[in-house]
Deep mutational scan, measured.
Amino acid sequence: MSIQHFRVALIPFFAAFCLPVFAHPETLVKVKDAEDQLGARVGYIELDLNSGKILESFRPEERFPMMSTFKVLLCGAVLSRVDAGQEQLGRRIHYSQNDLVEYSPVTEKHLTDGMTVRELCSAAITMSDNTAANLLLTTIGGPKELTAFLHNMGDHVTRLDRWEPELNEAIPNDERDTTMPAAMATTLRKLLTGELLTLASRQQLIDWMEADKVAGPLLRSALPAGWFIADKSGAGERGSRGIIAALGPDGKPSRIVVIYTTGSQATMDERNRQIAEIGASLIKHW
């Protein structure tokens, strides 16, 4: 067993022997301040990774656009098919120029040779490549099948209805392509620590998230040296922004954090800054 596999296998073990965790309302004060600064709703939840206990939450059962955070769930569904012998990570998928959609920095470079399922998941999570996500959605049967996968996990809230990039439209009061912070946090925890996926697939999923290259201005910008984070960000229309993450000190994750916002007129930089400040408060009061 590799060191990384050992780390993920012992996530519940280490967490069980940690000192009790206590909620700190100071972080919620910052979440509410972010709402004021952005002029928009902000949803927040913080779960203990081992027990699933909610440590703090704000608007945990209000719907927010998922945006690209759905790509972690998508690759979880792909990995479940791999575990069941219905898919192979090494299978190569070929596609054409007509398949390319807006923001496809990886797939646009491989029109000639195609990409493997493993490479597509890596591109979808680490670079948020939209064509990679659409190609992977095709392998599982489309958005409705991802929703069905989530329902089978016990998540009857999260739903995907459309493809990239239309799913980022974020129309107010439109339930399409949305989740709730509580539902997303619980589902992410199941994917990373539950028995739904094999140990190898859980490790692969967290490795992809740990290698995320496009979430630097968010929670990662607030992390002290030595902290662990595996995350996936999302951005959408109407001032929408979000991030889902597993993080913790001492090089291992111990909490799940989900943050979503929508309806702001603020710039992307300002949305990023507010999420980073929430992260800084979380870490300060850990």
Rank of each mutant, 00 (worst) to 15 (best):
K109A: 08
Q97E: 11
L188A: 06
I206Q: 07
A124F: 02
A225V: 11
G239A: 05
D269W: 10
S233Y: 01
Q204I: 14
S51K: 06
F58M: 14
I125C: 08
C121F: 00
G216F: 14
G154R: 13
N272S: 14
V117G: 02
I125V: 07
M180I: 11
A84K: 14
V257Y: 05
H94R: 09
I259M: 11
T116E: 11
E166Y: 14
I140D: 01
N50A: 10
L136E: 00
L79H: 02
T126K: 08
L199T: 13
Y260A: 03
A230G: 10
S51T: 09
L196T: 11
V101N: 09
S68C: 03
A246K: 04
N152D: 14
S233M: 00
E26M: 15
S240F: 03
R176L: 09
K232S: 01
T131G: 12
L79N: 00
V257N: 03
D36W: 11
D177A: 02
R162I: 00
N134D: 08
E119A: 12
T116C: 15
E87K: 03
R273S: 13
M153D: 04
G279Q: 03
V31L: 08
A266W: 11
R159C: 13
P172E: 13
L205R: 01
V117F: 04
D33N: 06
G90N: 06
R92M: 10
L196S: 09
G39F: 15
S221Y: 08
V78I: 15
R271I: 06
G39A: 09
D113P: 10
W163N: 10
H151A: 07
G114W: 04
D231S: 05
R59D: 03
L150T: 14
D33V: 10
H156F: 11
L89E: 08
G76N: 02
L160E: 02
E145K: 14
N168F: 02
Q88I: 15
F58R: 14
D174N: 07
R41C: 05
P217Y: 07
L73W: 04
G52E: 09
W208F: 08
P249E: 06
P65S: 05
R162S: 09
S281Y: 15
L120W: 01
G248K: 01
W208D: 06
D231R: 03
P217L: 11
E102M: 09
G90A: 14
V258W: 00
V31Q: 00
L49K: 04
A123G: 10
Y95L: 08
L167F: 02
I54V: 15
N130M: 01
G263I: 04
S201P: 03
L146H: 03
E56V: 09
Q37N: 06
M153P: 01
S233G: 10
D48L: 05
V258C: 06
D129A: 02
T193V: 11
I206E: 07
M268S: 12
T262P: 02
I229S: 02
S80A: 09
D99F: 11
